[in-house]
Design a protein around this nucleic acid. Structure first.
Lengths: 158, 158
DNA sequence: GCCAATCTATACTTATTAGTCAAGATTACT
DNA sequence: AGTAATCTTGACTAATAAGTATAGATTGGC
């Protein structure tokens, strides 16, 4: 039960684009440098985000990426789904072949209902959060960090 | 954000052992057949569970696996941690190198705090549930399924 | 002591995910 | 039209997870 690299970096790239504001344009080199991933990898991730309808791309000179929709309409849960799939996709139950002819788990079981409970808990967080929330949160934290005195503004927080 | 095979089958094997009751003994062939995985794979998973202190093994004839502790003292969250690690292990932030010299994300960021919120939500479910809960739930569901009329007791539920 | 049933350990193969590379297509500007 | 900056695509390699195989060690019963 781990976050995939796609989910982590994909969301970061989206937040970065959100930073650029509505209509703000960023190129792959810009995004990749800002997020510390290779341009090729950023391109691969951005393609997923584009196909998911979260960003749009413009080719050619002056091209780049932009949010496809206002930040408040981008639900993080949907982004994560596109980047990394659902927690529980029932691939296990499908292939599970228990000892008894009628597997008591083929319809439902405690393990399965536990996963469902976990999925509900996760969705509860991710279906509420929008990109706008993340951006606001980020700005709050940045101003807060910048307000801390010290060599680089961070020392005292570690 | 997917369940790993280890988590899925590991938990299933543990539930299967719980079924066998306190002191109940099951061999690898028994468990593997009941759970529909190969004996070799079951062995691999059971070793993880053993090292995690959830089950104990006896070698030789009459050997097999048993719960190492009472079912109500086995917290599912701990089992999942051992089988699959934590959702967010901060491997990303560690290697992340943003554009600015002082990465505003090196201490905290909205993405990171989002993952923390998700982790809290997951823990909220998994740190409460014990193996005993799963076993009781299973028995309830089994009796319920068996009570449904039909060719194999399952038809009407699909 | 011997044998069969059992777990143990390590190495191996396969599948999936992560990440890179190179050639092609599009666009703005001159 | 030409050129440079940009995204697009698909194939490639590397790393990790999933799953298998094989030889070894332990135990109980005869």
């Amino acid at each position: 039960m781990k976050l995939s690299a796609n989910e982590e970096y994909g969301l970061r790239c989206l937040v970065r684009l959100g930073y650029a504001g509505e209509g703000g344009n960023l190129t792959i080199p810009e995004i990749s440098q800002a997020e510390g991933v290779s341009p090729a990898y950023a391109a691969k991730i951005l393609r997923v985000l584009r196909k998911g309808g979260f960003v749009k791309a413009a080719r050619g000179k002056e091209g780049g990426y932009t949010l496809a929709r206002p930040a408040e309409s981008i639900v993080i849960g949907e982004v994560i789904d596109v980047l990394g799939g659902r927690l529980f996709e029932s691939k296990f139950c499908d292939s599970h072949a228990g000892q008894v002819a009628i597997c008591t788990r083929s319809v439902d079981c405690s393990v399965r209902s536990l996963w469902r409970a976990v999925q509900v808990a996760v969705d509860h967080v991710l279906s509420k959060a929008t990109l706008r929330d993340l951006l606001q949160n980020e700005e709050e934290m940045n101003s807060w960090v910048r307000a801390i005195p010290g060599p680089n503004g961070l020392r005292l927080l570690q």
